[in-house]
Design a protein around this nucleic acid. Sequence first.
DNA 1: CAGCTCATGTGAACGACCTTTACATGAGCC
DNA 2: GGCTCATGTAAAGGTCGTTCACATGAGCTG
Lengths: 246, 246
Amino acid sequence: MSWRKEHGRAERGYHHGNLKEALLQAALGLIAEKGAAGFTFADAARMAGVSAAAPYRHFRDRDELLSSIAQRGFEQFEARLSAAWDDGRPDTVTAFERVGKAYLAFAREEPAFYNAMFESGVPVDANAALQAASERAFNIIRAAAERLAALTPPGTPRPPAMMMALHIWSMAHGVASLFSRGDAARRKLPMSPDELLEAEVLIYLRGLGFPIDRRPATKGAEPPPVPPEASSGSGVPPGGPWGKPK
Amino acid sequence: MSWRKEHGRAERGYHHGNLKEALLQAALGLIAEKGAAGFTFADAARMAGVSAAAPYRHFRDRDELLSSIAQRGFEQFEARLSAAWDDGRPDTVTAFERVGKAYLAFAREEPAFYNAMFESGVPVDANAALQAASERAFNIIRAAAERLAALTPPGTPRPPAMMMALHIWSMAHGVASLFSRGDAARRKLPMSPDELLEAEVLIYLRGLGFPIDRRPATKGAEPPPVPPEASSGSGVPPGGPWGKPK
DNA sequence: CAGCTCATGTGAACGACCTTTACATGAGCC
DNA sequence: GGCTCATGTAAAGGTCGTTCACATGAGCTG
C-alpha cells in the first residue's frame, strides 16, 4: 500500500497525497473497535497523521464520512451477496441458503461496514448514491426471491417475490443484529447464529410449500447431496430443518 | 405531576426534590427526538432546570442513565408483551400473533425505549438488573413459543421452543428495525410492517406444520372466526397468509 | 524555468459536551 | 438549635466538531 509517490515510509510532506482514502480506512478501523457512535473525526485525522481540520477538505462533516462508509459497505455487501447467490447455482434453494449465510458472514466479518450501514443512524436517504447502493444490494435478495417464487410447487399459490425478499431480509437482519454481533453475540444461544438463520429460512420456505428436507449445515458449497429442484417430497417430512427432534 | 411538596409551579429552591425521575423523563423525550446518539446529558440537566453537574449525583455517567432507560424499557416491554399474550387466550395462535403485533407497536409507540434497548450501543450485560429485565421480556416470547410448540399437530416433529422463540424474536426485531422506525420507515413497502410481520410469522408457523388459514389482519382480539386449536386442516390450503394470490 | 493558481493542509479559536473537584445549601434528625 | 449528609452549584480540564484565515506546494501556462 503506497500512499505516496515514494512508496515506502510515512515520509510525507505538507500534503498527504491520499488523505481521503486514509481517512476512510482509519474510520473503518475505529468503527470496528468502538462502534459508529464512539468513532471520532479527530481520531481519524490523528490516525492519518493530519490536523483535525484537514478532513473537512474531503468530507463536509463527520456524517458525510459515515455515509461514505455506509455506501462502500453496501457496495461490498452487494458483491458478496451476489457471489453467494451465483445466479442460483447449483440449485435455487441451496443458493438461497448461501445468500443467508453470506449475509451473516458479512455482518460478522465486516462489523464496521455493517455498523455504518444499519446501526449508525445514517439515514438511507441521506445521499442518493447511498440509497442507490442500498437498493442494489437489496435487489440481489429480491432477484433470488423472484427465482424462488417462480419455483413454487404446482398446486401451491405463488407468494409475491417482494414480500419473500422482505421476509428474508428481516430474518437475516434480525439474527445478525440480535445474536451475531458485538455485545449481542454474548447472549447465550442453543445454536449458532448461522444454524439459527438457516433453520428459520428453511422452515419459512417450507411454510411456502417448498419441499424442504432436513439438512442443516451441510458445509462447503460444492455438490449437493440431494438431487436439486424438483424433488417433490411430502409436505412434512419427519425431522425438521432443526437438529434431531427428541 | 407534583414534583415537590408545593404541588403547582416550578417554584423550586436549591434542591429539586425529584431530579432522578425528572432526568429520566427528560432523557426519554430527548432520545425520542434525536436518538440515543444525539441525546446529551447536559441537555437533560438543562431541561430539568439544574446545573450540568447535578445529574452525577444520580447516575455514574451518561451511560448509566441510558442503561436505566433501557431497563425501564424492557420492563414496559415485558408488560406489553405479557398483556398481548394474555396467557394464550382465546387460542394459542391468535395470541401468538398478537404478541408479534405488540412487539411492533412497542417499537413504534415507544421509540425512545426501543432505541435505548436495542440501538443505543448499551451492552445488555452492562448491568445485572438490565440483563434480568431483558431476559424477563424474552421469556414472554419463550413461554408463548413453549405453548405453541406443545400444540404441534400429531405426526409432526416438535420443534424446540427456544429455537422458535429466537426465530420469532429475530423476525419481529428485523421488521421493526428495518421497516418500522425512524429513517427506516421511509423505505417504500408493498405492505405495512404489521402485515409483513404477520404474514412472515404465519408462513413460518405453517412451515412448522401448524394448520394456518389465510386471515391477515382480522382486527379486534375477541371471538376467533374459526374454531381454535385443533382444526387440523390440510397442509397447504389455497391462498396463503398473504393477500390474494394473483 | 518563472510564475500563477488552486487544491490541500495547518493553527487558532469558538462553543458544546463530559466529567471531576471543591464548595454551598438545606431537609431531616438529635 | 445545631449536625450531618444527600443533593445542588460553579469552575475548570479535556475532548470534539467545525470554521476561518493563512500556508504550502503540485501542476499548469507561457
